[in-house]
Design a protein around this nucleic acid. Sequence first.
DNA 1: CTTAGGG
DNA 2: CCCTAAG
Length: 579
Amino acid sequence: MFSCKPYEVDSDMPIFPVSEDEPLGLEHFLVEPLHKEDWVGDLLDLDAFQIEKCFNIEDISGTFDYDQIKPDAGREERSEWHGVVIPFTSTDTAYPKLTKGEGENPKMSSEKSQGINISVHEEYPTDTKCTDEACNLDFSTCKESCLGNGGLENQFQGSLKGDSGDAMVDLTSTNIPMLKYTNNHRSSFLDQVAAKELHEAFKNMSGQESFVTDKNWPKKDDLYGFENYAELDSMKLLKVDANSIVKEGETSFSSLVEYSGGVTGLVTGALNNERMSQNQKRKRVDGCESLKTTSDFKVEISSLDEGDKAGLLVSPKRSRKPPRRYIEESLDYETKSHNRKCGIGRKSKDRNLHDRYQKYNWQQEFQAEELVYEDDSFNGGCIQVPFGLPMEKDHPKKNKLSPGFEDSKDNGLLDPKEKLDIEPLLVESQEDISEDECFVRSHTLKGNGRRKRHISWTPEEVVKLVEGVSQCGVGKWTEIKRLLFSSSSHRTSVDLKDKWRNLLRASCTQLQIKEKVEQNRKQTSSNYVPESILCRVRELAVIYPYPRDSRSKVSCTVPAVSSFPASTPSALVPLPTAV
DNA sequence: CTTAGGG
DNA sequence: CCCTAAG
């Protein structure tokens, strides 16, 4: 099983020390070498960390030269990139351990999760005082853009080399890698090269067909999220304090991208602590709405402290101080985990919540949870951050009524395509979902007292509900959900019930009001429920009196039938037990 | 676990 | 939407 226990707190490294037998997390790859060579060596010596599931695909040091980029860079700022691609776990597929410098035998291990970790380190000179604050971004990769390790690399290279003109950045001034990348270069040479290289690397090192060929193998565009991230706020995110700009030093930039399952990536970089504004994040998310269904991308940007850098490689323990939020979450996690162990409060509701929130896991915060899941699934082979909701390792009881639904929700690792089925709800959620909300949702357990994000019912949903009621009758909320809302993880049977109740009220009141005021509302309120629907509701209310409000409903339902549009009689016709 | 109902 | 009681 998964041994995901709360991380212990160490006096030295209060936050996330990792025990030796503990599965190594990606954080380890964030380590910054004191010396380049050493760093590489250490990194390569993954065994020391008991990292069996990671491999260093390649060291991309010197893949670019700032000079090249910046001809006029008079200073000797020369940065080298050390790229480590750590593909890991793949459902039932072994993942090789590759080390470029060493001919180690690839280690295989079959894990559940599938993913790729990409760690790119750029040595950075110095005192870049990075905050502990980490930035979590949800890359919500767009469907077609799944993060690819090759992609990441490519992007860096490309952008650094000025491959894509618009992606150019003044490295000299910022001394930071430009992450920007444009989507237009899909079939760029770099892409192909990178993919090829990786592919070969896998083959050679593991003697096994790399998953590069796998359908899941990310395409260059996949870095999309990352790119977007950079693009979103390239200047801000990448911004570095003047102090951090090093002359001869090396800028350290590390990013970790975890590519797992469909597409969950975590990118951690020693960027400045500036966080992307909520709006920005949201923007990004909205922009990639479609992706959400197929993949979840998480990008975390955090920074390393100078002091933290030391010993990271040496000690198995994580010396990087996690962001406050992580701390909080980890604590939360601990508590919950403990509770669960003790059999405390772990009720169906939790599961429900989980269901509902699953939908939004692509959101920044939720990513944490998602990641946890994945980590869990592969034995913590690549634990990113010890936080998030308690993992529901094996959902003891899947929703028997809607297995498909469960699948989509439980598995961030599922084939992206399956996720597509999850439902186009994004359209609506898109507008009113923010990562904060997401956070709320993902952590809305009784204890937190935070409530689920309000998601307005769309007319389509209302129609479905009405149809469901017409088919199954009032009170069969579970059934209705199974039939018509199986793909809407955010709508529970209780929600349906509540909505129906509200519809009844609305049908009643609107009928009475039936003023032209409605028209105004129509224009202003996107949630406005068409009169035709309300008519149906009224009609159904007559047929299926609501338990308690039936009387009042009926009374105001008088004109119902007549107004019902003939265009949709089907819903009513089949009434099984029309009274 | 599912519903009904109150808040 | 949340929470809780009841079946």
